[in-house]
Simulated scan of single mutants.
Amino acid sequence: MRVGLLTREYPPDVYGGAGVHVEFLARELSALVDLAVHSWGEGRADGVVRHRPWSALDGANDALRTFSVDLAMAAGLEDRELVHSHTWYANLAGHFAKLLHGVPHIMTAHSLEPLRPWKAEQLGGGYALSSWAERTAIESADAVIAVSGAMREDILGCYPALDKDRVHVVHNGIDTALYRPDPATDVLERIGLDLERPYVLFVGRITRQKGVDHLLRAVRGIDPAAQVVLCAGAPDTPEIDREFRELFQELGHARAGLHWIPQMLPRGEVIQLLTHAAVFVCPSVYEPLGIVNLEAMACGTPVVASRVGGIPEVVAHGESGLLVDVDDDFEKSLATALDTVLADPAAGRRMGTAGRARAVGEFGWDAIARRTARLYGDVLEQA
Rank of each mutant, 00 (worst) to 15 (best):
A56R: 14
I155P: 00
D241V: 06
A31E: 15
G125R: 11
P198N: 08
R116F: 00
L25N: 00
L129K: 00
R65E: 13
L247D: 14
E153L: 08
E246Y: 09
K332R: 08
W365M: 05
R2D: 15
V304Y: 00
V229Q: 06
V228D: 02
L29W: 01
Q227A: 07
A232D: 13
Q382W: 08
Y376I: 08
D79G: 05
K332W: 03
Y179L: 12
V22M: 06
H84R: 10
D194K: 04
H84Q: 12
D344L: 02
V200E: 10
L71G: 03
E81W: 04
E319T: 13
D325Q: 11
V49F: 13
L129E: 00
G17H: 10
L215P: 01
L322I: 10
D163C: 08
G149I: 01
A218T: 07
A296R: 01
A141P: 01
T136E: 13
A225K: 07
R358T: 11
R370T: 06
Y199R: 07
A343W: 06
G211L: 03
R370F: 02
V48M: 10
G16E: 15
V281S: 10
W40P: 01
A177R: 15
R50W: 10
D327I: 03
L342G: 01
H168W: 12
A184W: 04
L92F: 12
L188N: 05
V303M: 04
S68N: 07
V3F: 06
R180D: 01
N172F: 05
E381P: 01
E287L: 08
L215K: 02
V169D: 11
Q249C: 11
E134S: 03
W40G: 05
R358D: 12
D154Y: 02
R197Y: 06
E243H: 10
A278G: 06
Q272M: 09
L71N: 03
G47M: 12
D344W: 03
Q272D: 12
C282W: 04
A161G: 14
E121F: 01
A74E: 00
H214L: 08
V303R: 00
Q209K: 11
L82P: 00
P183T: 09
A367R: 13
F280P: 02
L273M: 10
A74W: 00
R358C: 04
G268K: 14
A75Y: 05
P198T: 09
I138L: 15
A93W: 03
E153I: 03
F330G: 04
L380N: 05
F24V: 04
R374L: 12
P183D: 14
D236K: 04
